[in-house]
Design a protein around this nucleic acid. Structure first.
Lengths: 126, 126
DNA sequence: GCCAATACTCTCCAATGGGAAGTAGGCACC
DNA sequence: GGTGCCTACTTCCCATTGGAGAGTATTGGC
């Protein structure tokens, strides 16, 4: 659909496309988890974020942080020391996004049991 | 981090892990976009969803819908007709998730310009 | 001189995703 | 009565992505 009339506040397909594209870049697992970690702990250094997001590889952490920096979600501050220290902090934009995702986080918390049940049922049926 | 004391309502690492895992399965580009499409248009058939989510391949649409069905986000109704007709509809759980993501959608709408500006600045700098 | 610490960066391999073609199954048309 | 046609998949092949793990740059401390 090019999105039907419906009760939307806009219907500009270019805006829709842009929003979709933005969502596509922002709504992936690692971005969301890193966002969460930074929102909870404030300014953090590279390796601390890595510990806060279990399962992420260094490569993906670097990549995710770079992308987030590019989108204006985090700032990156390099301290010229040895050993090196690089700190990441959410921008206002990043903070707003974290708050927007907060609802999803709560949804997940609230519904873990329902989801597990749905999966068990689905797996049993198939 | 095992998540510091902080003002959280829980601190059970197993719950955290489960939530992370759930987020990981639910927070991907295609799931979010399909969720959006179904939330906007109500019950929809396979190919209509495909048209509503520009860029998705049939394979990913099938896969995403199956996974969403498994998580209990959508119901799948097959009408034994020719040509076949399969309709997908959000469950209450799926509807709640769509509402939770609503904030993200609005955030994207509100901040497209800031994001574009941040990207332009980043690309110019580097 | 050598090691430790940190934030990457690179290389190799496995998994994922897109594109296009194939499948099932019954009805309409010639 | 064979030939398409319609729709929701499914399969195959190939390019891209992601993970594991090793390598790199820097410099103060032993």
């Amino acid at each position: 659909m090019g999105k039907p009339p419906h009760t939307s506040y806009h219907s500009d397909p270019r805006v829709d496309a842009l929003v979709d594209e933005t969502i596509g870049r922002v709504a992936d697992k690692w971005t969301l988890l890193v966002l969460e970690a930074l929102e909870e702990a404030g300014e953090q250094r590279f390796s601390a974020i890595g510990r806060a997001v279990p399962g992420i590889s260094q490569k993906m952490l670097t990549q995710t942080l770079r992308q987030m920096e590019r989108e204006g979600l985090v700032t990156r501050t390099v301290h010229a020391e040895v050993p090196p220290r690089v700190e990441y902090r959410l921008t206002d934009l990043g903070h707003d996004l974290a708050e927007a995702f907060c609802g999803v986080w709560h949804w997940a918390e609230r519904n873990i049991e329902k989801i597990e049940a749905a999966r068990a049922a689905f797996d049993a049926r198939k």
